[in-house]
Structure formats: C-alpha cells, structure tokens
C-alpha cells in the first residue's frame, strides 16, 4: 500500500525539517562565515583568531576545565549511582534531590556559586567565624587564578554531575543482578565486582555520558562568566566577546568552528577507545 510505504518518511519529516532549519543551515552558515576572511584571505579569520591575545589562555583554560571536571564528575556520578543501587528505602527521594541541579541553568548555577564564593559570601563568612580570615577576602579575581579556576570547576561539577548520574543510573538498571551474584559466589571482593563486572557492563552508558559531558564541557561559558567574568577566558567566552563586543561575526564563527572540531575529535576518540568488540556483545 503506498500510504504504509511513505508513512515512516512522513513521520520523520517534521524532525528532519526541524534539524535542517535550526541545525544544518546555521552550521553551514557558520562554517562559510568563518572562511569569509575578506581581503585577509580564506584563512584570514583563523589567523586572526590564532593571533588573538586571549586565544592560547582560553584554549588552555577550556582544556584544563574539561580535563579536571569530566573525570571528577564521572567518578562522582558512578559513586552516586552505586549508592542509589544499594539503597533499600528512599531511593526515589534521594535521586530526585541529586538531580535538582539538572533544572538549574548554567548562569543561575554560576550566580549561586558567586553568592557563596564572593568577597562577602557565605564561604568567607564561614572562614571568618572559624578565625581563618580577618575580613572579606577576594578569591575570584585575576590575582587568584587558582582559586578562581577551582570555583568554576566546583560550580560546573555541582551543576552538571546530575546529567551523568541519570545516564549511569539508567545503565546500572540494565545490568542483570545475576552477574553480581555470580561474582559474589566465586568470592569476588566488592572492588573486583566493580572493576570486573559493573564497569565493563556499564561501558555503553559510560561512553554516552563521556561524549555528552565532554562536548558540553567544551561549551562551558555562562557559569565561567558569572563567577570570573573575563578573568578566566574560555573558548566560548572569546567567541561571545568577538561577536558582541568586537562586532566581528567572522572571527566568532572561527571560534565556534574550532570548538565544534575539538568536540568532534573528542567524540571520535571516545568512540574508538570505548568501542565494544563484537564478540563482547554476543
């Protein structure tokens, strides 16, 4: 019947049109714009980006944030997932509490942590009452890059560990209990059970979580901007500055393309490293 033959295409048409209009077209436009260097030539915008004073710092900061935040989040989320798995009572309430930051936007999370870590914030009040500091102390300016970096990392970990947790919890629920029970019967310690049974079985979920989190971590911006402003430049922040302050959309597009290329490369690395062998799936 002709209707049934076209039905699948008809059903995916709205999603395809949506993706084409809101993703594919802007993507192509951004790439074209990034290579529109005018008199500077085909790679003019990229040369300008590479020559930007903040380029190296922002690239280094972005990579350092990704390399710090993503592994810590993965470990924390796996720990939280295992705790939830063991829980007899109140599991749903605890899961609900732990996933609250999912509903908090990047900027709001940045403002939350700014309220805690600013000069007159709650952390300084706590330290003041302990007698560690004498008065308001600045942790978030360019003269304290280490504490500024830690503050941004903490805010990022607080805000987006829940994303990883949800994926890990879903993955843990798919692992048959019999595997763990069999490992216990054979005398496996809790550590052996985790490393030889749980984590290998969790590989597809870990892969998804790692890809999602890494890509989002490369796009970090609002929380960084709220906490440190331009004291801690990151790649997306520089794209924003080139677009909004410098009104140079082409260099901003070059930054955007660079972030996309880095994200795609990271995804390819994860897919290759965490690839499941066909015999393991059987």
């Amino acid at each position: 019947m002709p209707t049934s033959r076209w039905l699948p295409y008809l059903l995916i048409a709205p999603a395809s049109v949506f993706l084409a209009v809101f993703f594919a077209v802007p993507l192509v436009q951004t790439i074209v714009l990034s290579f529109d260097g005018g008199t500077a030539g085909f790679f003019g915008n990229y040369q300008r980006m590479l020559g930007d004073l903040n380029f190296n710092v922002s690239l280094r900061n972005t990579f350092m944030l990704v390399l710090t935040v993503v592994p810590l989040q993965m470990m924390l989320a796996i720990g939280m997932g295992l705790m939830l798995q063991k829980m007899q009572r109140g599991r749903d309430v605890v899961l609900w509490i732990w996933t609250i930051p999912l509903g908090v936007s990047d900027l709001a999370a940045g403002l939350v942590w700014l309220a805690i870590l600013q000069n007159t914030g709650y952390l300084n009040t706590f330290l003041f009452h302990l007698g560690v500091i004498d008065g308001p102390t600045a942790w978030l300016n360019s003269e304290t890059p280490v504490t500024l970096f830690i503050a941004v990392a903490v805010a990022e970990i607080w805000r987006s560990t829940a994303v990883v947790l949800v994926i890990i919890v879903a993955g843990l629920q798919l692992i048959p209990k019999e595997f763990g029970e069999a490992a216990e019967i054979f005398g496996a310690s809790p550590w052996q059970k985790l490393t030889r049974v749980t984590l290998p079985m969790l590989k597809p979920s870990l892969q998804s979580a790692l890809i999602l989190r890494t890509v989002l971590a490369f796009e970090v911006f609002a929380a960084v901007y709220a906490i440190g402003g331009r004291n801690i430049p990151v790649l997306v922040g520089e794209a924003y500055v080139w677009q909004r302050d410098n009104q140079n959309y082409s260099v901003a597009a070059a930054y955007a393309v660079l972030i996309m290329v880095i994200s795609l490369a990271a995804t390819a690395v994860y897919l290759r490293l965490l690839r499941e062998k066909p015999e393991a799936r059987a």
Partner: peptide, 20 residues
C-alpha cells in the same frame, strides 16, 4: 559511612540552593 555519604551529597546539592 554509607548513610553519611548519602547525606553529605544531599547537603552538597541542597545547600547552595538554600543559600541563594
């Protein structure tokens, strides 16, 4: 230890929201 860990993580999530 396990209960303390769960409580600590709940506080870690809720405290910043409470303060703001």
């Amino acid at each position: 230890l396990y209960g303390s860990g769960v409580m600590l993580l709940c506080v870690w999530v809720l405290l910043p929201i409470g303060l703001i």
